[in-house]
Structure formats: structure tokens, C-alpha cells
Computed example of a mutant assay.
Amino acid sequence: MSEPRVHGTDVKTAHQDLHSDQGALRGEHPGRSRNPVIKVADLAWLEFEKPDLDRAEVFARDFGFGIAARTERELWLRGTFPGSPCMVIRRGRSSRFIGPAFRAAERADLDRLARATGSDVRDADVPGGGKVVGLLDPSGSPVRVVHCGEQLSALPEQQPLLLNFGTAHRRTNTTQRPPREPSRIQRLGHLVLETRVFERALDWYLDTLGMIVSDFLFLDGQRERGPVMAFIRCDLGSVPADHHTLAMHLGPGTGYVHSAYQVTDLDSIAAGGEYLKERGYQRSWGIGRHIQGSQLFDYWRDPDHFMLEHFADGDLFSCDIEPGWAAFSTSGLAQWGPPATRDFLGASPTPERVRHVIEALRGDNEMDMARLLGLLKAAKS
């Protein structure tokens, strides 16, 4: 379980204003578990269902994925880095997100996880084989933890451009002409989820999968009620890990918000974005640079309205970096770039969104009118 909280005054931590103006106050959530069941090493892949695999494959290639395997019922997508595929899309009656699969550091971790959760270790239906444990998080979303057998080999990379800086002239007698082609995906970076039971879900990922928090966000005037968003990384000890592999925020809905895929550099993001725009896809928000995580970003909608992000140049933290704390606001989502759109924020009052709000306010969860008004205020701030 998470460490006990002690109430009182400010406490000095290893935070040292490294990545946020504020660290934790005494008694606030520590952002890690004292004794987690296992410590996952990374995201392995995400699982979706869609009725039209041909259309899904066209977008996947335009967005920059490689094809790891294709059957009549399944489409496995990959990046250029060696390892596991980063997405599987199975043929289904409707378009929906199923859940994430996290990569276990060792095969024995699956046995330990199965014993602790009363689950079974089963064969994984992934190209190359492997083993998997299936779980449900407190939001009711399926979560799989896998240990793969055969690994995919590396593919050719999209090379970064050689840049000149001030008097450092590394490029002479040649021009810059980034090709107008898809951004070549290197790997799956992170997943963002919405949940009505934020604190329970957060503790589950820390206690069960051994993840640790990089940054917390709280609602203005409601810090004493605890955070409403967390950027969570894998605990790889002294080895630096992505600032967040998973991010979660409190909201009236449950499930997928967006997923992010690393590409080479800013030119890859921009030229790949022009390629997508020319083919009629919808940009949701970008290009810009985030605050939490520092990534260069560009968000797009696929034909099934799922949001996907190209990113580059993200922060890497080792295990000794403590969580930062900041107020949740739309202006605080980016250091530079265009204003966050209503589409990105999910602020359009669609019938489905209205239904989710009504269900959340009537249900047994962490959403109430004060939280809802605080979230609406943050979306406008």
C-alpha cells in the first residue's frame, strides 16, 4: 500500500525545484508505494477493436507505424525500435479501446503478480509468443502484464537533421530539405486515461505495478482534497525512465484519452504533420512543447476519432526524483504553441459527455459538483 501520510507543515524532499515550482506538503500523497507487488519496465502495447482493419491500416501507415503482422482478424503495429509491437487492432463490431499491456521486467514477475492477485499466467497472443497475466484496474478497465518471447528486430530510422547553432556550424555547403513523408514511429511512449475513481486507480497502479509519480496536478483552491491528475513513470532505479508512461486524470468519463508515440525530432513531427494534413486528417492540437514532461507534441484524430500524439525530446527521470505539484490549468499544459483546443480538452458538450457527467454525479465515485466546477474552471484558465 502507499506510504502513510503525516499532516503538518512543508517538508524538504529531493524535489529541489528541479521540474516544478512546488514539491509536496507534509501529509500529501507520496507518489510511490512502499512495497509494490512488481515493478513493470514499460508499456508493451495498446489493444483496440475496430470494424474496418483496412481503413485502420491506411491511417497507421500515414501516421508512421510499421506493420508487424496482419491477418483477417488482427493488425499488429510497430515502431522502428526493437522489442514488442506497440499496438494491436482486432476486428470488432464497434471502435473501442480495450486496454494497455505493460511489460514485465522478468518472467518470474508474472508468477508473483498472479499469486498476489489470484490470477493465472496464460499464453500471450502476440507475434513471437510469450506469457501474460490479465487484471482489472479500479475503473474496471482491462490491464495486461506480459513477458514476450521473440522480439522484433530494429527497422531503419528516420535520421535527425544536422543543425547549426550560433557559431557551431556542423552543416555547410548543403541545404535542409526534410522529406514530406510520414513521421516514422520509433516506439510507444505513453497512455492517458480518464477515471471517476482517480485516487483508487492511482494507488492500484503504484501498489500493483510499482510505478511512481513524476508530477501531480491539483484544482485551484482544492489542493487539500488531493490531486486530480498524475503523470506516472516506471521505476527503473538509477536508469532514467520516461517522465510518464501512464497519465491519469479525474473526470466524468472512464477510459482512453490519448496515446503518444516517439519520433525522431521536431522536423519529423512538423513534416509528418504536413503529410497528415494533406491527406485530410484532423489535427487536434499542436505543434507545441509541454510543461510536465517537456515533450514537443502534435495531436491528431484517426478516422475512428481516437487521439494519437507524435512527440520528441521528452524528460527522463531516475527513481530519486520526487513528484512535483502544480495547479491544473489549460495554460499550464504547454510552454509554447497554440492555445489548447476544445477538441483536445474534450470540452464540447456532446450527448455522450453530458451522459457521463450525469452518471458520474449520481454514482459512487470521486466526482462531485465541486470537482466538476473545478475541472471546468481549469479548462478555461
Rank of each mutant, 00 (worst) to 15 (best):
M1A: 13
M1E: 12
R5Y: 09
K12V: 14
A14Y: 10
H15D: 08
Q16F: 14
L18H: 12
D21R: 13
G23M: 11
A24F: 04
G31M: 02
S33R: 01
A41S: 15
A41C: 09
E47T: 15
E47C: 13
E47A: 15
D52Q: 09
R55F: 02
E57S: 07
R61D: 03
F63Y: 10
A69D: 11
E72G: 11
E74Q: 09
F81I: 04
G83S: 12
G83V: 12
V88I: 12
I89L: 15
R90Y: 00
R93M: 14
R96E: 12
R103P: 02
E106R: 14
L110V: 01
L110E: 00
D111V: 03
A114M: 01
T117D: 00
V121H: 07
R122F: 03
D125V: 10
V126S: 01
P127Y: 02
G129L: 07
G129W: 04
G130R: 03
V132C: 06
V132G: 04
V132K: 00
L135R: 04
L135I: 08
V145I: 12
V145M: 08
L152W: 01
L152D: 03
A154R: 06
P156M: 06
Q159F: 06
L161M: 08
L163T: 04
A168G: 01
R170I: 09
N173Q: 11
N173V: 09
P178G: 11
P178E: 05
R180W: 04
R184H: 09
R184I: 10
Q186S: 13
L188P: 02
L188W: 11
G189S: 15
E194S: 13
E199K: 13
L206Y: 02
M211H: 02
V213C: 07
V213M: 03
F216E: 00
L219P: 07
E224I: 00
R225Q: 11
L236T: 05
P240A: 08
A241K: 06
D242A: 13
L246Q: 06
H249P: 00
P252D: 08
G253Y: 04
G253H: 09
T254H: 06
Y256F: 15
Q262N: 14
V263D: 10
D265N: 10
D267L: 13
I269E: 01
G272R: 09
G272N: 05
G273S: 15
G273D: 06
Y275I: 07
E278I: 00
R279F: 03
Q282N: 09
I287F: 14
H290M: 06
I291A: 09
Q292Y: 11
S294L: 12
S294G: 05
Q295H: 11
F297Q: 06
F297E: 02
Y299F: 14
D304W: 04
D304V: 01
H305W: 11
F306E: 00
L308A: 04
D313I: 08
D315S: 14
D315Q: 13
F317W: 14
S318F: 15
C319K: 12
I321L: 15
I321G: 00
I321D: 05
E322H: 13
P323A: 10
P323C: 06
G324A: 08
G324D: 06
A326I: 01
S329D: 03
Q335I: 07
G337S: 07
D343P: 03
L345T: 08
A347W: 09
A347T: 15
R353V: 06
R355Y: 02
V357R: 05
I358C: 07
N365S: 13
A370C: 00
R371C: 14
L372E: 04
G374T: 07
L375I: 15
K377E: 15
A379V: 10
K380R: 15
